[in-house]
């Protein structure tokens, strides 16, 4: 028999987590598929479940005095899409995640914690150097999303910790985003690219590049980004092939039921080229 915990307060939730190893159940749109057994049967959960959607304390979207966006742990995609506080580029990404019905249920934190290589929200979070806040009875810590996700389904979370918040620092950038799936809606990403850049006085002041779905986690290479920051936009465009080649060893997609290694590789590079051409 497993226990079902439905805490009403964060404190209650953290108390439970300090004593029980639980699935953290938010919107459930990933868990209910993963644990689905058959029509009419209960999902096949093999350990205790902590349901968090009643934690009103985690239901917020706000901006602090440094313009950091704080997203509460149970904020759903539909709420983020409708919030005036959320940057447009996030909305662009969110509007292409799953389907309207799923976006009315699924949470941002759930998408992060699911740690799928095809998780779309993780791409802009990486690009913005966003962090997650984890709380436990032992205390609070903040981890960059890039570090929090360690691999396929692997996250840096202790059993007693709950992700209570996502913090997105501001970024004064121009953006490029393209998600490639197998159809125009309700589709799992084959490959995606988000680019961000800032140009001042003809020079590239900031350059950020994130690939989704082409490796075990989002590819963002700080070293390459730095290398091409500070040069003029003309030089950047002249060196597009060099930049693409820099990513050769980073683009390591697989062949699966949705696409091929070859396709993902070529399209990832095409997208990068398309993005870099727009840096003006």
């Amino acid at each position: 028999m497993i226990n079902h915990f439905v805490p009403k307060t964060l404190k209650e939730a953290l108390d439970i987590l300090s004593e029980h190893d639980c699935y953290i159940f938010a919107g459930g749109t990933d868990l209910m598929v993963q644990k689905h057994k058959s029509s009419g049967l209960l999902p096949a959960f093999d350990k205790d479940i902590l349901y968090v959607m009643n934690l009103k304390e985690l239901d917020y979207i706000k901006v602090d005095s440094q313009n950091n966006l704080h997203i509460g742990g149970i904020s759903r995609f539909c709420e983020l899409i409708n919030s005036p506080l959320v940057p447009d580029i996030f909305k662009t990404v969110f509007l292409e995640i799953a389907s309207p019905n799923i976006r009315n249920t699924a949470t941002l934190v759930g998408n992060i914690a699911n740690a799928s290589p095809a998780g779309d929200s993780i791409v802009p979070l990486n690009l913005f150097n966003a962090s997650v806040v984890l709380q436990s009875k032992r205390g609070t810590r903040t981890v960059l999303v890039q570090d929090f996700i360690q691999g396929v389904k692997k996250i840096d979370r202790e059993k007693d910790e709950l992700i209570t918040e996502v913090i997105v620092p501001p970024a004064d950038l121009k953006f490029y985003y393209k998600k490639v799936g197998s159809r125009k809606a309700e589709t799992i990403t084959k490959v995606s690219l988000m680019g961000g850049y800032k140009v001042e006085g003809g020079k590239v002041k900031d350059l950020r590049i994130c690939f989704g779905s082409i490796s075990t986690k989002v590819v963002k290479n700080h070293w390459i980004e730095e290398k091409y920051t500070g040069i003029s936009t003309n030089e950047l465009r002249a060196r597009i092939d060099d930049i693409i080649n820099e990513y050769d060893h980073e683009i390591r997609p697989i062949t699966d039921q949705r696409s091929t290694k070859e396709y993902r590789t070529v399209v990832a590079k095409n997208l990068l080229r398309d993005f870099l051409r727009q840096v003006k």
């Binding site: 125009k184 799992i188 039921q257």
Partner: peptide, 16 residues
């Protein structure tokens, strides 16, 4: 069959 679910076997949606 490699495509066993509706998530992998893509029929047209209203957007397609």
């Amino acid at each position: 069959f490699k495509q066993k679910a509706l998530a992998d076997y893509a029929i047209p949606t209203s957007m397609d």
